[in-house]
Design a protein around this nucleic acid. Sequence first.
DNA 1: CGCGTCGTTGAAAGGATTCAACTTGAGTGG
DNA 2: CCACTCAAGTTGAATCCTTTCAACGACGCG
Lengths: 247, 247
Amino acid sequence: MPSTIPLNQEITLTVIKTACSNCNLRELCLPFGLSLEELERLDDLISTRRRIKRGDHLYRAGEAFDSIYAIRSGFFKTDVLLEDGRDQVTGFQMAGELLGLDGISTEHHTCNAIALEDSEICAIPFNRLESLSREIHNLQHHFHKVMSREIVRDHGVMMLLGTMRAEERLAAFLLNLSQRFTARGFSHAEFYLRMTREEIGSYLGLKLETVSRAFSKFQEEGYIAVQQKHIRILNVNGLKALMNHRA
Amino acid sequence: MPSTIPLNQEITLTVIKTACSNCNLRELCLPFGLSLEELERLDDLISTRRRIKRGDHLYRAGEAFDSIYAIRSGFFKTDVLLEDGRDQVTGFQMAGELLGLDGISTEHHTCNAIALEDSEICAIPFNRLESLSREIHNLQHHFHKVMSREIVRDHGVMMLLGTMRAEERLAAFLLNLSQRFTARGFSHAEFYLRMTREEIGSYLGLKLETVSRAFSKFQEEGYIAVQQKHIRILNVNGLKALMNHRA
DNA sequence: CGCGTCGTTGAAAGGATTCAACTTGAGTGG
DNA sequence: CCACTCAAGTTGAATCCTTTCAACGACGCG
């Protein structure tokens, strides 16, 4: 809300802090590649910010869709439910990533988005995003790239689920997390998992016991050190080799 | 190319026949929801049509991306290759569906698209599509829906690969094909598979023998009649029940 | 008509799941 | 501050489903 009249410096600072133009995630997020002037126009659009407490839903499958969401801080999972009760985690999302793209198709969300830790999101009204992206070519193009990237990511998961064995899946999962933490300035070798073994298993198409066994195996082999949710990667190449070693 | 000067009636007819405005797939394809005038502007953009022979590539992973493709007739598969030689079919596409959306992300195609029968496609230069969709709101919105639908579809496949057993996967696959054939005016109960057991298996994360066994099982149970690639669905509800019967 | 690709089927092997017991850790309340 | 409780995680043994290996049958193309 840069249009708000600054009453005093403190308020001004608060306002600035929550705008895209001053968000340190902007190069990972929707504003990528925009000029300063374009950035300010995007700021106008992102008026709603929300805190989501750990365990709460950002949205639920079936709800009407009207916004996509950028994660400002925190960690989410998305999952789909089948009528017969089976469910599957379709992804884990972290700061700078977008949630809700699945809802554009039918104007209703098709999955649940749940915070795995206390989080903060920026709501982006979709019709306004469309209208702004008709004016800002870079925004339009970048948004298309983001959607396309999601499709490519999904293909990667399909590959993982379709062709990999349990340990390969977990290795791929850890390497992917590590790489995404790195891109956000965190350690590539040491991090806390925000999700349970069961959620990892659901995402990887495995039972929680299988995930647990694979963690133990990796530890025995010296690839990682695990202590509950705390992970240290000791041998990245070992994990990479594990993923690629079979014809 | 409605702007082409009609030299005689025969040429005119040919031209008309290959435009979106006269394509009977337009309600399934990109032109959905456009007015006549908008349709004609879209026609201008889709100047290139290509025949792809069975077994030929429409594009390959790694090639520079510049167009997306609408299938006018025929049948395709897309697949991804891992460095270690493993590959996976990520989808089967039929008339009216779009190919190449994965390429927007990196400006390079990330999968291979291969014709499973002699096919015909319309190439849609992507930068021109973006610029036209800045002018035609309906086109922009529908394109976003199509991309989103692809994401939702991928989630469905992840669900299938992550939580279903072999026979459930095949049942889901057959029901999905049946439904898509129906939407195109073909029989919902009788069709020819364009792909081999191995390709089905790759898509479903199963070995070809497992697919074959599941087909035989369905036949024994009286759900379908199989003769090589010819399928007749005898009991849709049986197949549906098979998909949903476990908690 | 022969050869190769595709499909089917059987038997054995292997990997993930299931069931179950036990451990660890975080949070609550006396 | 510690005992209690419950959720999350680990590990073992048996089971089950899919894969692997192998042989054979069917179809289509040159």
